[in-house]
């Protein structure tokens, strides 16, 4: 079978689902965050594939921005998780219990 856009989209879609799976099922904040990164990457793959198959640069530029933003987000996010860990000695979602009714 010749590889076309569709195949790339399938990969991207599956990747997105895996990422989501990680976010939904895993309870460790850091691993959840990795799942989120996977979702970003799925979007990147789709964007690059679309961009190349449509021969239009916008998609690749978007990827550039996404990667940059994701990096910034990771930095802030990890700093936050570390700060929380220092207070709480845990990086588990179940332990986020202060804010309740």
């Amino acid at each position: 079978m010749n590889v076309g856009l569709e195949q790339y989209l399938m990969v991207s879609g599956l990747l997105f689902c895996f990422g989501l799976l990680g976010v939904v099922v895993r309870r460790n904040l850091i691993i959840m965050y990795m799942g989120l990164e996977l979702m970003f990457n799925a979007a990147n793959l789709a964007l690059v594939a679309f961009s190349r198959f449509n021969d239009n640069l916008d998609g690749q530029l978007m990827v550039f921005f996404i990667i940059t933003v994701a990096a910034a987000e990771v930095a802030v996010g990890l700093a936050l998780i570390v700060a929380l860990y220092r207070k709480r000695q845990s990086a588990h979602v179940e332990d986020l219990t202060t804010l309740k009714l």
Binding site: M34, R52, I67, T68, A70, V74
Partner: peptide, 23 residues
């Protein structure tokens, strides 16, 4: 394979090289 060489390099440089190290 998609001939997006620049992004491939950036992907490795930023994601694999920096972001994941941070993780």
């Amino acid at each position: 394979l998609l001939q997006a060489f620049f992004l491939a390099a950036v992907q490795i440089l930023v994601y694999a090289g920096a972001v994941m190290v941070l993780f």
